[in-house]
Design a protein around this nucleic acid. Sequence first.
DNA 1: CAACTGTTATATAATATGTATAACAGAGAT
DNA 2: ATCTCTGTTATACATATTATATAACAGTTG
Lengths: 129, 129
Amino acid sequence: MIFNLDLESEVPIYQQIVDAIIYGIATRQLKPGEPLPSVRSLSADIGINMHTVNKAYQILKNDGFVLIHRQKGVMVNTELPGVEPSFLEKLHADLKNLTAEAICRGLSREALVEQVQKIYQQMMDERRG
Amino acid sequence: MIFNLDLESEVPIYQQIVDAIIYGIATRQLKPGEPLPSVRSLSADIGINMHTVNKAYQILKNDGFVLIHRQKGVMVNTELPGVEPSFLEKLHADLKNLTAEAICRGLSREALVEQVQKIYQQMMDERRG
DNA sequence: CAACTGTTATATAATATGTATAACAGAGAT
DNA sequence: ATCTCTGTTATACATATTATATAACAGTTG
């Protein structure tokens, strides 16, 4: 599992960790049941504070992507969350904002849809390759 | 122009204003050349501070969505910005995160694409209706 | 017992967000 | 000229978020 963090980004570090792990699960670089590094080892590896990693893990736990056993550690959930209403709300709100700006800038529906298709396909290819 | 702001949201107020105006331009509720309310009148209308509105206007100005004349006021740019690399970068990054979570949750490519198509179409319908 | 888990607590610093108040410069209206 | 309206700038303040630092606790494993 490779973390490509940008400490200068406006995106919080803990959010970048959350995104990276969800991406890893989507592409099956991280498989259900697979253990994740401990908060201490991961924070030491990427040179940040323990609590920043812990915050990311707590978010992933609350969203159902990982299971945390207090002594055993953290692992990818064997039963990943489904398409819940809260996710659909976030998806719709984000897509609405992106689409509005795309329309203002003259990006065609076909070009936008193609982008989504391409990203989805690339992720599914990584899943097998 | 209707602003539906949520002061309890985790999304900053100035960002909600930016999103609302870009949405208004996309749906042509706001037309190129049309004047926007002054920072003072808008902030008074929605009951927030002048600087919060000003911050939103500055962002829209830097992105090319509005023109600001120091004495005349703010208006929608008659030459809206095109599909610039910085926008494509943001679009790709956001779509990547949304798609990764969608895949984890078992949302099919068809369902995701349909969402995008639907949102795009609804916005183009508002543009005419 | 020692080493490792996640968890909790406290403290500190920097940044982001939002408000409050005031002043400035330029344009237009009366 | 005076008044009012623009955006702009400055200062100050309060709060929340982000990130770090250090320490301790409880339970498991070797």
